[in-house]
């Protein structure tokens, strides 16, 4: 058992150590020398900020409904919404093209409205939402389903309206899990490659996010790609760590309030 645990840990961590050791810690600076880096980093931050906002604002009510629905088909719907995790992202990109591309199911209709989502930042955001939302939805649905039903019942008996119940009871209790889910979802969006390449294309400053820049740099030379990857890793690690910090505070608060009841 321990051997397996150590093996798993090694497999997950060693590639990142190798990335760091092989390039040297200064390699990250070389990443900034590459002309692709800054536009890509900026685009990645902007697009993932938009996509995570959409995922949280849309995903939270959807997860709340999924977790509490007595409708049998809700379980099927929940499974259906997890499908983007299973299919290869490139296939997801093709599916997005077939749906929202110019010749797609809704494409002609969208174009008549003067809105063509491919080859621009909107497409990047759409691809990110498509691949990352399931992570948040899963975490949020699970968190809402695990809520203490008695607490909600008591709240209701004391006359709290459903919105009040949601914002004052359910949301604070589920918050750590929601933040964790959002972090996973954001990380997935940041690393998104295949669907973006297919749906949004690869254009420096317009649709070339950091993972696409890394892949393009791989065609130039391995070292540059390595440096850029290191940049992405350090960046993501820092942000995930910061999110954990934020998460710990409300978690402690939640524990305090639950012990006082």
């Amino acid at each position: 058992m321990t051997v397996l645990a150590v093996g798993l840990g090694t497999l997950l961590v060693v590639p990142f150590i190798a990335l760091l050791v092989d390039g040297g810690p200064l390699a990250i600076l070389r990443g900034f020398e590459c002309s692709l880096t800054l536009p890509a980093l900026r685009l990645s931050l902007e697009t993932t900020a938009v996509s995570i906002t959409f995922v949280v604002l849309g995903g939270t009510p959807l997860a709340w409904w999924l977790a509490r629905s007595k409708w049998r088909s809700a379980k099927w719907l929940e499974t259906l919404l997890q499908l983007p995790v299973v299919i290869p992202p490139a296939v997801g990109g093709i599916a997005l093209l077939l749906a929202f591309g110019r010749r797609g199911l809704f494409g002609g209709w969208l174009e008549r409205l003067g809105f063509a989502p491919t080859f621009n930042a909107i497409a990047v955001v759409m691809a990110q939402i498509f691949v990352s939302a399931p992570f948040y939805l899963h975490a949020a649905t699970l968190a809402f389903a695990r809520l203490d039903h008695d607490l909600l019942a008591v709240g209701r008996s004391l006359g709290a309206s459903p919105p009040r119940l949601f914002f004052r009871v359910a949301l604070p209790l589920a918050k750590p899990a929601l933040i964790g889910g959002a972090a996973m979802s954001w990380a997935r969006a940041l690393g998104e490659f295949g669907a973006t390449l297919m749906f949004a294309g690869n254009m420096t400053g317009k649709t070339q996010t950091l993972p696409l820049a890394i892949y393009t740099a791989l065609e130039i030379d391995l070292r540059t790609a390595q440096a850029l990857s290191l940049l992405l890793v350090v960046f993501a690690f820092g942000l995930l760590l910061a999110l954990r910090r934020i998460n710990q505070a409300p978690a402690a608060l939640g524990k305090g309030s639950s012990s006082s009841r």
């Binding site: 093709i94 080859f119 390449l197 297919m198 690869n202 254009m203 892949y215 065609e219």
Partner: peptide
């Protein structure tokens, strides 16, 4: 030019 694809098949697909 709207996109510079990473391989020829992706150009074809688009």
């Amino acid at each position: 030019i709207r996109s510079r694809e990473l391989n020829v098949r992706q150009v074809l697909t688009k």
